[in-house]
Computed example of a mutant assay.
Amino acid sequence: MYNDMLKTGIYVDAENIRMCGGYGMRYDVLVELAGSGNAALLRANSYVAEDRERTKDDAEYRHKLYRYHDVLRQCGFKVIKKFVKHFVDDEGILTTKANADMDLAIDALLQARNLDRIILLTGDSDFIRLILALQNMGCRVEVIAFKHVSQELKECADNFLSGYLIPGLLPFTTGGDHNRQRGIPINYNAERGFGFMRYYSMNAEGLLNAESVFFHCSKAPDANDALFLDSSNIFEFSIVQNSDNGRTEASDIRWLEV
């Protein structure tokens, strides 16, 4: 069944993603992306933190947490819990820790023997050695993250894609118009005040297609040339048809501060 398929596994460092811009991420969209084209999703693991003291004493926390875990399972993920540990450091400060790095790394290394492609969701540079090890085993490693992403991690991966640019993975911050997109500026001409926004769309097979649309700086009253000259900046915008020349262009452009 899987002989001609790209056998894929997803490993989500859920706490890192949640704390670094990915709160509210749609796991079903992630599954759709991972299983698109000629790929077959064989493993999907999410590594989550649970504070057992709060679970026992705080009914609201327990209800929200377990509902979140149920959503992950409904999307086809195995939920691996790392229980929060509380300890007092040398200065008498109470510290909490729930690091699932080791669990994720061991699972990925063991399961990679049956995989061709691994999608790793984290921005943590601690996973660089894991990526190199997986690549040496013959796996293609793709990283998805949102903000506070290690530059070395990006460079180490076979491909890095900002989660902000994946259609539907996160809700928009500037309105729910179905024409709303997120993209990065390319080929910006500061003297003439125009360039192009590169964004992604999903085709019928769930594959990401890179597209571009013209924009003029006048459609972004709160932005400036410096922002448009940096292709790492992410913008939200609507795609409209210019009534004067019939050209498709980006409008209502807002810089996404990440």
Rank of each mutant, 00 (worst) to 15 (best):
L115W: 01
L115H: 05
D116L: 02
D116Q: 03
I118C: 03
I118P: 03
I118G: 01
I119A: 04
I119H: 00
I119Q: 01
I119L: 12
I119T: 05
L120D: 01
L120V: 01
L120S: 02
L121C: 13
L121R: 00
T122S: 15
T122W: 01
T122H: 00
G123C: 09
G123W: 00
G123L: 02
G123T: 08
D124A: 06
D124I: 07
D124G: 07
D124V: 10
D124N: 04
D124R: 01
S125E: 15
S125R: 10
S125V: 09
S125T: 10
D126Q: 01
F127Y: 13
I128A: 10
I128H: 02
I128P: 11
I128V: 15
R129T: 13
R129F: 10
R129A: 13
L130P: 09
I131R: 00
L132M: 13
L132I: 09
L132V: 11
L132K: 13
L132N: 14
A133G: 04
A133W: 00
A133R: 09
L134N: 07
L134M: 04
L134T: 05
L134D: 05
Q135D: 09
Q135H: 05
N136G: 14
M137S: 12
G138Q: 08
G138W: 05
G138V: 12
C139E: 07
C139D: 04
C139H: 02
R140S: 15
R140N: 10
R140F: 09
R140M: 13
R140L: 14
V141Y: 05
V141D: 05
V141A: 11
E142I: 14
V143L: 12
V143N: 12
V143C: 12
V143S: 08
I144S: 11
A145F: 04
A145L: 04
A145G: 11
A145T: 02
A145I: 03
F146D: 07
F146G: 11
F146A: 12
K147I: 14
K147F: 14
K147E: 15
K147P: 10
K147N: 15
K147C: 15
H148W: 03
H148Y: 11
H148A: 14
V149M: 06
V149N: 06
V149Y: 03
V149H: 05
S150L: 12
S150H: 08
S150G: 13
Q151M: 12
Q151F: 10
Q151I: 15
Q151W: 02
Q151S: 15
E152G: 02
E152W: 00
E152A: 15
E152M: 08
L153C: 08
L153R: 07
L153S: 10
L153N: 09
K154A: 08
E155C: 07
E155F: 02
E155M: 13
E155D: 14
E155V: 05
C156E: 15
C156W: 00
A157D: 09
A157P: 09
D158I: 09
D158Y: 02
D158K: 03
N159D: 12
F160S: 06
F160W: 06
F160K: 01
F160D: 06
L161S: 05
